[in-house]
Design a binder for these strands. Structure first.
Lengths: 226, 226
DNA sequence: ACAAAAGTGTTCCTCATACACCCATGT
DNA sequence: ACATGGGTGTATGAGGAACACTTTTGT
């Protein structure tokens, strides 16, 4: 028994304050004209992560920015009507700005806000939901929120990431203290913003800590999936 | 391009106070005579999780006990010398006692303590390390430690699970208060142990909460992998 | 009586929360 | 001057760590 193996990407970013995902419109059946996650087949000499990174670059042109990690695999017998296909889903957290390019399948790609999103092709609804929940959980105990920001960012930008991903409001003053006092979360650059309204803000880069101590916990937590 | 798809299981339990993993001795090449994780091919009409559960039952005879979740997929081009094989790894947390049965490949299965474990076949070292780290992390935020215990257990048994998995010592008194006061962690049965040394202990069953509020954090945390 | 393990009370400290307040800039 | 957002100080309360102490059994 052999399988086709694909990688599908849940690419998330913050656009106009809304958590958004990159979707393509399928040009060919099945699910022609429907929205789907971008993805493609794993090539003969490629590792899974390499295939995901290749797809990411093809869709966005971004290389090395943001964050890419494996999300999980989906291989139910009937998930693709064309045959037995196992997909390895990856989660990407990206800074805003990358104008989506048309994929190699000549399908149009768009950033779509998650709010009130229509059904997706295949089992991509489930994959997307798993990816969003993973992202929400990871913001609690890792400094990965910075992956949504440009190389240098203000504490307020970082807070807006949390507010968009968690769909909550956070106290700007407590958030500021928390972030700057947690070892390895962010690193001050010494530079500041200018030309904006209000007092200039310090610019930071992402810190080196792989996990946050202590974590930044959500209040009303959503139930875990697995 | 097609692939062979397998599931491999990281099955963990506590034996004599030591975190242990079920390994098989390979009867055939490659890596003949070496230790490996139990696993096998996904069948034509099987979902990935079903294949993992089938392998779990084949190896241990346990059905419905413990906890089973997907760990991740591994598909580097050279990971199996016989060809292109993608494996979907699953993590199982099991109560002690199941005498390992010989697998269907006529390979001997043994519970092996993690301390000072020799090299494993294929990339199973990496998969095992990922599984152990996942288990360690999950004990922080979920009540899954109970998956290592029999249906009814004492707080001391639960504490010994944490001590074995985290390789630390926890204060029995603070641990008791913490567990019993965290909503949905454990449920009192009203019954108690008898015939043991010291004061009898209340028996509990696993609670219904999917996540712990607040979590039970490790002190010196290991760095995350991804 | 004693050992052993279960379970409670108490103290101290860290950190989250709420919010008053000051700072530095654009208009 | 005033609005706007950046950033600090501080009081209160919940929870973690340490540990003295009581309870309930077996030997």
């Amino acid at each position: 028994m052999t399988f086709a193996v694909t990688v599908d990407l849940v690419m998330l970013t913050i656009r106009d304050g809304a958590l958004s995902v990159l979707l393509i419109r399928r040009a060919i059946p099945p699910f022609q004209g429907g929205y789907a996650l971008p993805g493609g087949f794993v090539l003969p000499d490629e590792d899974l992560g390499e295939a995901a990174e290749r797809e990411l670059v093809e869709e966005t042109g971004l290389r090395g920015a943001g964050h890419l990690e494996q999300l999980g695999s989906y291989g139910a017998p009937g998930r693709d009507p064309r045959g037995r296909v196992v997909t390895v889903a990856y989660l990407a957290l990206l800074p805003d700005a990358p104008a989506p390019r048309a994929g190699s399948d000549a399908a149009a790609a768009d950033w779509v806000p998650l709010e009130g999103l229509a059904d997706l092709a295949f089992d991509h609804d489930r994959i997307l939901a798993d990816g969003v929940e993973r992202a929400r959980a990871k913001l609690e105990y890792t400094p990965l929120a910075a992956a949504f920001c440009p190389p240098e960012f203000t504490i307020a930008e970082l807070r807006q990431v949390y507010e968009a991903v968690w769909a909550t409001r956070l106290d700007p003053r407590n958030f500021h203290r928390k972030v700057t006092s947690t070892e390895g979360f962010v690193e001050a650059t010494g530079r500041s913003t200018a030309g904006e309204r209000g007092r200039p803000a310090q610019l930071f880069t992402r810190g080196t800590a792989p996990v946050l101590h202590p974590p930044l916990l959500r209040k009303g937590q959503l139930p875990a999936l697995s």
